[in-house]
Write a protein that binds this DNA or RNA. Structure first.
Length: 191
DNA sequence: GCAAGGATATCG
DNA sequence: GATATCCTTGCA
């Protein structure tokens, strides 16, 4: 369990940064369905990114969960991070595997899920989780309201890692971060 | 600065 | 069926 501290919004086929920019396809199909459903996709061949489908059925939209501040299950998160890091690589010597495990073991708790790919790794998510109802209290993966949601300060910035210099969808401030969190994505210098 | 995986969308 | 690209990450 953890607290979501960074997200990005994607909405509509006109949003050229969205997977829905080509219309409905096999991959993005759930984005066109009812809200509250998980959409997990693979980027760069090794990172599974978790999204929450939003907007009523027919309107393709989703919110990418970019960073989580771990609260419970720290040990399992480290294990899942190590498993992911050592199984998603084709060429990895035994020495490098050990080094990777040690690096993850030494990570500060607040950095275990500090990025969209790291959220997927820490929670052991794969594209097979697409379709899970995140609003069902009985679901193995679910969203819950933060008790102190009303007092949290949020900043808005442009979205990360999207192309199209000078295009309107690039500068739109649709990335939201919990102010003051030490678990947001990116290198320390940029936080 | 760039290489590391694999799925995907878009061509032949 | 081939290939450029991708909502990333960590190391050279």
């Amino acid at each position: 369990m953890g607290r979501i501290v960074e997200v990005e919004a994607y909405i509509g086929e006109a949003d050229q940064a969205s997977h829905a920019r080509f219309g409905e396809t096999g991959r993005n199909r759930v984005m066109y369905g009812p809200p509250g459903i998980a959409y997990v996709y693979l980027v760069y061949g090794m990172y599974d990114c978790l999204n929450v489908v939003t907007e009523p059925a027919g309107v393709p939209a989703a919110v990418l969960i970019r960073a989580v501040e771990p609260i419970e299950g720290i040990g399992p998160m480290r294990v899942d991070r190590v498993v992911r890091a050592t199984t998603r690589r084709r060429t990895l010597s035994a020495d490098r595997m050990v080094a990777e495990a040690e690096r993850i073991a030494a990570l500060p708790v607040e950095r275990l899920a500090a990025g969209p790919g790291l959220v997927g790794a820490a929670f052991g998510l794969t594209t097979a989780w697409t379709g899970v109802d995140l609003c069902d209290p009985g679901s193995p993966l679910r969203l819950e309201a933060a008790p102190d949601a009303a007092s949290i300060q949020v900043s808005a910035t442009p979205r990360i890692g999207i192309g199209g210099a000078g295009e309107p969808w690039v500068s739109r401030p649709w990335r939201f971060v919990v102010r003051g969190s030490r678990s947001t994505s990116g290198p320390a210098a940029a936080r």
